[in-house]
């Protein structure tokens, strides 16, 4: 039988499910976009995606949103991912491996330090 909740349980339950509201409202602190064009997938973007999700789950991150996008146009530098910390310009990482992805999460997503050696550039194309 389910445990009857107290006021404290209710608040704890809400806080534990914050990743749900963050995702549904699209209001995360950080957003990581994995480029999943045919080129990206061929170069191993799926592994990057799985690593990313695995890291988020094992670290229990509640405020990181993961999305996908199509080919970014730089097919020879795939797999790529773009990291966007709230109120900061996006950073594109190229030629990722699962290990590199883990380091980007630890340093950039969690600590706010750009991993310059994997980064292509800061900023994004201008949207028309």
């Amino acid at each position: 039988m389910t445990k009857k909740l107290t006021i404290q349980d209710l608040a704890a339950m809400r806080d534990k499910t914050r990743s749900l509201t963050v995702l549904r409202d699209g209001a995360g602190r950080a957003k990581v976009t994995v480029h999943m064009g045919t080129c990206g997938i061929a170069a191993g973007a799926r592994d990057i995606m799985e690593t990313l999700l695995e890291e988020i789950r094992s670290r229990g991150l509640q405020d990181v949103i993961v999305t996908t996008s199509g080919c970014a146009g730089l097919c020879n530098r795939e797999p790529m991912a773009t990291v966007e910390i709230k109120d900061q310009p996006p950073v594109k990482y190229v030629q990722l491996t699962p290990d590199k992805m883990r380091r980007v999460i630890a340093e950039h997503v969690l600590d706010g330090r750009i991993v310059a050696e994997y980064a292509l550039a800061v900023g994004s194309e201008t949207m028309y």
Binding site: I7, L10, M13, R14, T17, R18, L20, T21, R24, D25
Partner: peptide, 20 residues
Amino acid sequence: RIDPEKIEEYIAYDGYQGMA
């Protein structure tokens, strides 16, 4: 935005806080 059959999702969106 929530699954009406899942009480956890209602609670995630501040459900039952007013009652508390």
